[in-house]
Design a protein around this nucleic acid. Structure first.
Lengths: 203, 203
DNA sequence: GTCTATAACTCGATAGAC
DNA sequence: GTCTATCGAGTTATAGAC
């Protein structure tokens, strides 16, 4: 580890510990010990514990922005040949997931942990992880409706339902993975649910 | 406050504080101060902080058990005259909600806060707040299918989708209420979503 | 940029008088 | 069942030597 990477090591270590033991359950001491430096040295890289959390929020915001823009770009280019709604949707889902690295998965956990307690986390969850996702799904459903890939289903509320389905599965699968369930099985379950949902819109 | 009610006051105070500041963010000192006794006195009623949390879980388990049994009883009695699926469903929802007092709403928040961090809370969330709810909805959907109130929609997965919708709305509405939104508006939104979902099964 | 040392405070929990 | 008093450990953060 170079000196220049210490800040990054602190960041990634904090994400892991915050997601595992919670923000309040993790001390600056824990992070420093795991990184291999003293607590006081950590303050040369971050102004304090809360500054680390701010950095984590900024990171996640960046990841989401990039994913949404990538999907916006994809929408208006090379997917015109995809006429099957399920295939169309899965292509978009794969594109979106490209931007979701393991770190951003852990950050989602931190945000859900803190959303009731911390104003910034709550705002992020409502704006980015819920509203922005709903808007994105709405735009994509509209696109599919124009191409007559799906029926007239009340796009506004249906998009909401899809996002709630996704969030519910994300939470449940994370919990079940913590209890030792096989991630492969969970992924297949996820694909099954998504497929059924989109098929329901197509018929 | 009688002496005999001190334990109950501690319990309810803990529920409020845990839901507002989190389990780790609330100290035994906070609870004692709010109740109006010294910390040491609190230990005459609970063996410790964790024992209070255990009591909270037991309370919620009891609430859910009673609500589920009430709905089971209702299913096989006086709702035979209800042939409209939305009316049928709303009658059941109202019956279920009768058992959900404000305390149990706050406890749900505590559980979601702790589900990633605490094994007992995670188990409760998965078993009671997710699986038991799915099973209940499945049973009711089967009942409705037998009476030909709904179409053949793949009851297993559809019940899951309904529970995820409910959980998603519960979380989002709690967050928005924390940010000062009008509970009345949120309740109407909830009714709108439920109605649309059940209508979608009826057609 | 890292360290030692320490300030200033909060935590859960207990002993023992009344 | 409530209190005072206290313990031992943990908390974030800073000062200053190297």
């Amino acid at each position: 580890m170079d000196k220049t990477n210490t800040r990054d090591t602190i960041f990634k270590t904090a994400v892991v510990l915050f997601s595992r033991k919670g923000y309040h359950g993790t001390s600056v001491r824990d992070i420093a010990r795991e990184v291999g430096i003293k607590e006081s040295s950590l303050y040369n890289h971050f102004n304090g514990k809360e500054a680390i959390l701010d950095g984590i929020l900024a990171y996640q915001m960046d990841v989401f922005d990039k994913a949404v823009h990538a999907l916006d770009a994809l929408k208006s280019t090379d997917v015109d040949d995809l006429t099957d709604p399920v295939e169309f949707w899965m292509a978009g889902t794969r594109e979106f997931l490209k931007y979701m690295d393991p770190t951003s998965g852990l950050i989602s956990r931190i945000l859900i942990n803190e959303m009731y307690l911390n104003q910034k986390c709550r705002e992020f969850y409502l704006d980015t992880m819920t509203k922005a996702r709903k808007d994105l799904v709405k735009a994509l459903f509209s696109e599919m409706r124009k191409k007559e890939m799906i029926r007239d289903c009340g796009i506004e509320m249906t998009a909401d339902h899809y996002v709630y389905l996704l969030q519910g599965l994300e939470i449940e699968h994370t919990l079940r993975e913590l209890d030792g369930e096989d991630p492969g099985v969970l992924k297949n379950e996820l694909i099954g649910h998504i497929t059924l949902f989109i098929q329901g819109l197509a018929q």
